[in-house]
Simulated assay, not measured.
Amino acid sequence: MAYDERLAERVKPLVMMRPGFSEKKMFGGLAWLLNGNMCVGIHKDQLIFRLGKEDGGAALSEPHVGPMDITGRPMKGWVMVRQEGLVESADIQRWVERAIAFVETLPAK
């Protein structure tokens, strides 16, 4: 399954209107990088968010959230949110803001 293009169209305006973001096809999906660091992505029909180890670990207890595991090896500090957790635009916006808050702390690449 390719990535969900309708989901991409919901995310794109939330990130691409901000300075420092770029879009890149990655791991069979689509990713948005902030200052060269991956911030948000789509894998199949789930959104990927880079939250850092502390917030990423805490987010795993939230509904519809699981570890980012597309290779059989979960990545700490990253989460995947299933469609059920992305129903409202405000849901996506909240996750995007959390990811941006973390990625802005990283040095630019």
Rank of each mutant, 00 (worst) to 15 (best):
L7H: 10
A8L: 06
K12Q: 14
P13H: 11
V15P: 04
V15A: 04
V15T: 07
M16E: 12
G20F: 13
G20Y: 10
S22Y: 04
S22D: 09
S22E: 13
E23D: 09
E23V: 13
F27E: 00
G29S: 06
L30V: 15
A31K: 00
A31H: 09
W32N: 01
L33I: 01
N35K: 12
G36W: 08
N37P: 03
N37I: 06
H43P: 01
D45Q: 09
Q46W: 06
Q46V: 12
I48G: 15
F49E: 00
G52Q: 05
G52A: 08
K53S: 15
D55Y: 07
G56F: 10
G56Y: 09
G57L: 11
G57N: 15
G57F: 14
S61E: 15
E62Q: 08
H64M: 06
V65Y: 10
G66H: 08
P67G: 14
D69E: 04
T71Q: 03
R73Y: 11
P74K: 05
W78L: 02
W78G: 00
V79Y: 05
V81H: 04
R82T: 13
E84D: 15
L86C: 06
A90Q: 07
D91H: 09
Q93D: 05
Q93N: 01
R94H: 07
R94I: 00
W95S: 00
E97M: 05
I100Y: 14
A101W: 06
E104W: 02
E104C: 01
T105P: 06
P107E: 13
P107D: 11
